[in-house]
């Protein structure tokens, strides 16, 4: 009898994951993001597309690193020809830099807005629009109700959303599936040659729904993510949901 119970529970868990947007691993590994150990932290070891990700970036340096990291993911998301919307207030992102991350910047549409309210409205409308590869929104702050609206939009349209939060003072709970922090770390050149090496980041997964948060070092090398070394530390699995 306990076996059947366990079966039922595991089946229900799978169902819940499916409803939350976590696809079971595909037989063909076509659209893997090459994030290696980072992807393993997610349920089913799949980077959740069609979900809302939250990235914290308070300094311009972090914003640049985050932009680079997202661009790396966008390269895979936009491979099938979809377009992408970058909604922001700064207007500082340099489209010519995206090509280094195999993103065709002419398929990225930039929307520069001043008011946070407008940004959220546009983000919600964009996330409702099927056929987009991804939507990136730079917001100061987002509360639970606002993020819930975005989550509902994402659930029906299966568009991947990235929320870049700049104001970390008012950290509130929201419905994002993962919370990231990307910061630059010193690069290394092969054999200690002079010059600057490949962009290297510390990727922190602060919160993952149904997954294991952690910290990794990644490098953008030759058009793909390369994990630098072993996972440095592992947070406790405090984000895990009790079943």
């Amino acid at each position: 009898m306990p076996d059947t119970k366990r079966d039922i529970i595991s089946k229900l868990q799978k169902d819940i994951l499916l409803w939350e947007g976590f696809k079971p691993p595909q037989p063909d590994n076509a659209d893997t993001f090459g994030l290696g150990p980072v992807e393993a932290a997610f349920p089913n070891s799949v980077f959740p597309v069609g979900a809302l990700h939250e990235l914290l970036c308070s300094t311009p340096g972090q914003a640049a690193a985050t932009a680079g990291f997202i661009a790396g993911i966008l390269g895979t998301l936009m491979k099938q020809g979809g377009a992408c919307l970058w909604i922001g207030s700064s207007g500082k992102l340099f489209p010519a830099s995206l090509s280094a991350f195999s993103v065709e910047a002419d398929r990225v549409i930039f929307i520069d807005l001043k008011k946070g309210k407008d940004i959220l409205w546009v983000t919600e409308e964009a996330l409702k629009c099927e056929g987009l590869a991804a939507v990136i929104a730079e917001v100061q702050d987002i509360n639970l109700a606002q993020s819930r609206r975005l989550q509902l939009a994402v659930e029906s349209s299966k568009v991947t959303g990235f929320i870049l939060r700049t104001d970390l003072q008012k950290s509130k709970t929201n419905t994002s599936v993962a919370r990231w922090r990307i910061s630059s770390i010193p690069s290394e050149t092969e054999g200690g040659l002079p010059g600057v090496g490949f962009p290297r980041w510390q990727v922190e997964l602060l919160k993952v729904r149904n997954g294991n948060p952690g910290v990794w070092k990644m490098e953008w090398n030759g058009g793909r993510f390369v994990p630098v070394d072993e996972k440095v530390t592992a947070y406790e699995t405090w984000g895990r949901r009790a079943v």
Binding site: P60, A63, A64, A65, A67, G68, A71, S90, K92, L93, F94, A96, S97, L98, S99, A100, E104, A105, D106, V196
Partner: peptide, 10 residues
């Protein structure tokens, strides 16, 4: 889009 020279993200 040129990729031969480093260009900043921001």
């Amino acid at each position: 889009w040129r990729t031969d020279r480093p260009r900043p993200s921001l």
